[in-house]
Nucleic acid binder design. Structure first.
Lengths: 216, 216
DNA sequence: GTCACTCACTGACTCCGGGTCAGTAGCCCG
DNA sequence: CGGGCTACTGACCCGGAGTCAGTGAGTGAC
């Protein structure tokens, strides 16, 4: 039946068309500033149609975030494949994370909102599964670099490797959050700040804290 | 005129009554989860009355945050008065921040919510001035410890002292966010974790990164 | 050719929450 | 007692997420 196949193809094309409109709107307006009405009119569809393809606004955002995460995963994997010592790999991963945040500030902001318990994503949706799977891949990359660094002596691991990884990640998230909300942060602080420089030099600082004795 | 004075006193009592209701609601529900209707009914007033005392929900949030910040400021100042070397003071400040989070997880979550939003607070309100002033006091405490540490050689300051301070603060916020939402975080990661231990050992890690050569 | 059926799509609707304002009730003073 | 001030009320507005009965363009059986 060619009809069934055509329908299936058209359905996934429409989904893609919505995703592209949504991505542009989220990028321009941010997560909370974007409205489903605007996404709908940008996709030349009615709002109701969006809900035939995505269960909610969150789901729609997760779907766009998943496209971006896939990109992140491939960058992480490439950073590992480039080889070198453990600390070199780890440094490359940290830089990738930082550069990714700079390129996609809105996704960087969103990727931390799940830490706020008042913001609960539906854990039973396929999009959320996909999101979580990608996150797990990222952590496995980080763990591989740390384990290697522990073996080759370029990374000092005080306790469990995974604990160190989560500490790196958590602290990077905090600093990235500051950067992402730089305009507002600077408005509330008593001094002026170069947040770009701050974020980059934080990477140096935290990496220096874990660099092993056998460096170079 | 005793009448005028009584009116003034009653007005500030009512304001306080609203603040207490608001504080409970914000702590229970978070910033976005709290509704003005709930604050109103908790304070046994109508919603309209809230707007006679506070210009907006943001303004009310700022006012409650200011009460909590005042407590934090006095702890910070006490930590400085205890004296010692720069790194000792700084370590005490970091521990105060950590202990405060452990004692008041709701407050800790609450105090970081503005980093998770695209919120723009009204910069022209008196509450915002008060907020900025408190934040400035906290940062001045931290800055004093770092400057002292720079002079006495117990703290290694790679760049601007204030930049280092913001890095410490930001990374602590990130790790604290993980801790505050530990149950959720652990459930989503591929390994098991002792989040209490993780947060404490992060303090050791970041402090070791900035400890000067002339330690003890 | 036509008629019943399916399916994608629509947009007016509900619900919710922040914010407003005309109206009310009580107190004060002349 | 009456005019006016003040504190307060709650019905209402508005915008945005999400819903659902209805529409119309294919599709396929006869």
């Amino acid at each position: 039946m060619g009809v069934q196949e055509r329908r299936k193809r058209e359905r996934s094309e429409r989904r893609e068309q919505i995703l592209e409109a949504a991505e542009r709107v989220f990028l321009e307006r941010g997560l909370s500033g974007a409205t489903m009405d605007e996404v709908a009119s940008r996709a030349e569809l009615s709002k109701g149609t969006l809900y035939l393809y995505f269960k909610s606004k969150d789901e729609l955002y997760l779907a766009t975030a998943n496209r971006q995460l896939a990109e992140m995963v491939s960058r992480f994997e490439a950073a590992l494949e480039a080889g070198g010592t453990g600390i070199e790999m780890l440094e490359r991963l940290v830089r990738v994370q930082l550069e990714y945040a700079i390129e996609n500030p809105d996704h960087a902001r969103f990727s931390t909102t799940w830490l706020n318990t008042t913001y609960r994503l539906d854990a039973d949706s396929p999009s959320f599964d996909e999101y979580r799977t990608s996150i797990a891949k990222l952590f496995l990359c980080g763990n591989e670099a740390i384990e290697l660094g522990k073996r080759d002596g370029t990374v000092r691991v005080p306790g469990e490797p995974f604990e160190l990884l989560v500490q790196l990640w958590g602290s990077m998230v905090g600093v990235t959050l500051l950067w992402v909300n730089a305009a507002e942060v600077v408005r509330r602080l008593p001094w002026d700040l170069d947040m770009d420089h701050l974020m980059h030099s934080y990477c140096d600082l935290i990496l220096s804290a874990i660099r092993g004795e056998t460096k170079q």
